[in-house]
């Protein structure tokens, strides 16, 4: 690989006619400038102009964006919504926890008004959810689990053992064999043992 060029914030990389600005760059007066300190990467994406971006060794902090699948931990529930702490965005762990809310009507796709949060989540559960909104002044990130692949992934029973999912709405404790209600995420077929 040819040695990559170093760049620092504010350095002019090229003009808008040569490339499309990518990550780590910004436009000003018809030229593309770097906004990070790192290496310049030019990637050819087919017939269009190459995308120019700046890469760093260490990834900067990622923020949850609309449409991203996030892994979160339930902190408290009440009849109208469940409050969660967002721990991972995709597969990148976050350094600092972000707060999110899963409203009652966003738990399931069907029979939204018959949902009881107590029977869908419990504090301490690990949940896969999708971000639907960044929220406004009062609220936190709004999340939804209204898809088959979203919902509770790991939950502990009242006896303290990790439960096994048996259907989309029930999980069973291996120790006491008691069944508890949760909105369970469907396991991807590639993770099931044949």
């Amino acid at each position: 690989m040819s040695p990559m060029k170093l760049c620092v914030p504010g350095e002019r990389l090229c003009s808008t006619e040569d490339c499309i600005p990518g990550n780590g760059t910004y436009l000003r007066h018809g030229s593309i400038f770097a906004s990070l300190a790192g290496y310049v990467l030019r990637k050819n994406e087919g017939e269009e102009l190459p995308v120019i971006s700046v890469v760093r060794e260490t990834e900067a902090q990622l923020l949850p964006d609309v449409g991203a699948i996030v892994t979160c931990k339930v902190t408290s529930i009440n009849p109208r919504f469940a409050k969660v702490h967002i721990l991972y965005v995709g597969s990148t762990p976050l350094k600092d926890r972000f707060r999110g809310t899963i409203r009652r009507e966003d738990v399931r796709a069907t029979e939204k008004d018959k949902v009881e949060t107590y029977k869908s989540f419990r504090p301490g559960d690990i949940v896969l959810a999708k971000v639907i909104s960044l929220g406004d002044v009062q609220s936190n990130y709004l999340l939804t689990t209204a898809e088959n692949e979203l919902g509770v992934v790991v939950a502990h029973s009242e006896a303290g053992a990790q439960m096994v999912p048996i259907s989309w709405c029930e999980m069973q404790c291996p120790r006491t064999h008691a069944k508890e209600f949760r909105k369970v995420a469907r396991v991807q077929p590639e993770y099931l043992q044949a």
């Binding site: 504010g10 780590g24 910004y26 400038f33 906004s35 990070l36 300190a37 900067a60 902090q61």
Partner: peptide
């Protein structure tokens, strides 16, 4: 800020 990887217009 440069060390933290926060995008800036310039130094």
């Amino acid at each position: 800020l440069v060390d933290a990887g926060i995008p800036m217009r310039d130094y």
